[in-house]
Amino acid sequence: MARKRAFILAALGAPFALLAVPGVAQASLDMLDTLDRGEWELRFRDGGNVRKICLRTGREFLQLRHPGTNCNRFVVENSASDVTVQYTCRGNGYGRTHIRKESTGLVQIDGQGIAGGKPFQFTAEARQTGRCN
Results as ranks from 00 to 15, higher is better:
Met1Leu: 10
Met1Ser: 12
Met1Tyr: 08
Met1Val: 11
Arg3Ile: 11
Arg3Met: 12
Lys4Ala: 14
Arg5Val: 15
Ala6Ser: 07
Phe7Pro: 01
Phe7Ile: 13
Ile8Tyr: 10
Ala10Pro: 05
Leu12Phe: 14
Ala14Asp: 03
Ala14Lys: 03
Pro15Lys: 10
Leu18Asn: 05
Ala20Thr: 15
Ala20Phe: 15
Pro22Phe: 14
Pro22Ser: 13
Gly23Ser: 10
Val24Met: 15
Val24Gly: 07
Gln26Cys: 13
Gln26Ala: 13
Ala27Gln: 08
Leu29Gly: 00
Leu29Ser: 03
Asp30Val: 09
Asp30Trp: 11
Met31Arg: 07
Met31Val: 10
Leu32Asn: 00
Asp36Phe: 03
Asp36Thr: 08
Asp36Ile: 09
Asp36Pro: 00
Arg37Gly: 08
Arg37Ile: 08
Arg37Ser: 07
Gly38Gln: 06
Gly38Pro: 03
Glu39Asn: 06
Trp40Lys: 00
Trp40Arg: 01
Leu42His: 07
Leu42Lys: 02
Phe44Lys: 06
Phe44Gly: 02
Asp46Arg: 09
Asp46Phe: 04
Gly47Asp: 03
Gly47Lys: 07
Gly48Trp: 05
Asn49Met: 02
Val50Arg: 06
Val50Ile: 09
Arg51Ser: 12
Arg51Asn: 10
Ile53Pro: 11
Ile53Ser: 08
Ile53Glu: 14
Leu55His: 02
Leu55Trp: 01
Arg56Met: 06
Arg56Ile: 09
Gly58His: 06
Arg59Asp: 00
Phe61Leu: 15
Leu62Pro: 08
Leu62Asp: 04
Leu62Asn: 07
Pro67Lys: 13
Pro67Asn: 01
Pro67Ile: 11
Gly68Gln: 02
Thr69Trp: 01
Thr69Gly: 00
Asn70Ser: 06
Asn70Trp: 02
Cys71Trp: 01
Phe74Asp: 10
Val75Trp: 04
Val75Glu: 11
Val75Ser: 09
Val76Met: 12
Ala80Ile: 12
Ala80Val: 14
Ser81Gly: 08
Asp82Pro: 01
Val83Asn: 03
Thr84Ala: 15
Thr84Lys: 12
Gln86Val: 04
Cys89Gly: 00
Arg90Val: 02
Gly91Asn: 02
Asn92Thr: 06
Asn92Arg: 12
Gly93Leu: 05
Gly93Cys: 04
Gly93Ala: 02
Gly93Thr: 01
Gly95Trp: 04
Arg96Gly: 06
Thr97His: 08
Arg100Gln: 10
Arg100Phe: 00
Lys101Pro: 03
Glu102Phe: 13
Glu102Arg: 08
Thr104Arg: 14
Thr104Gly: 00
Thr104Tyr: 03
Thr104Leu: 06
Thr104Val: 13
Gly105Asp: 08
Gly105Ala: 10
Leu106Thr: 07
Leu106Glu: 05
Leu106Asn: 02
Val107Ser: 00
Val107Tyr: 04
Gln108Pro: 01
Ile109Trp: 06
Ile109Phe: 05
Ile109Pro: 04
Asp110Leu: 09
Asp110Gly: 00
Gly111Glu: 10
Gln112Ile: 11
Gln112Lys: 15
Gly113Pro: 04
Ile114Pro: 08
Ala115Lys: 02
Gly116Tyr: 11
Gly116Gln: 10
Gly116Glu: 12
Lys118Thr: 04
Lys118Ser: 03
Gln121Cys: 03
Gln121Phe: 05
Phe122Ser: 00
Ala124Met: 07
Ala124Ile: 04
Ala124Tyr: 08
Ala126Arg: 01
Arg127Gly: 05
Thr129Lys: 12
Gly130Thr: 13
Gly130Met: 12
Arg131Thr: 11
Arg131Lys: 12
Arg131Gly: 12
Arg131Leu: 11
Cys132Asn: 09
Cys132Gly: 02
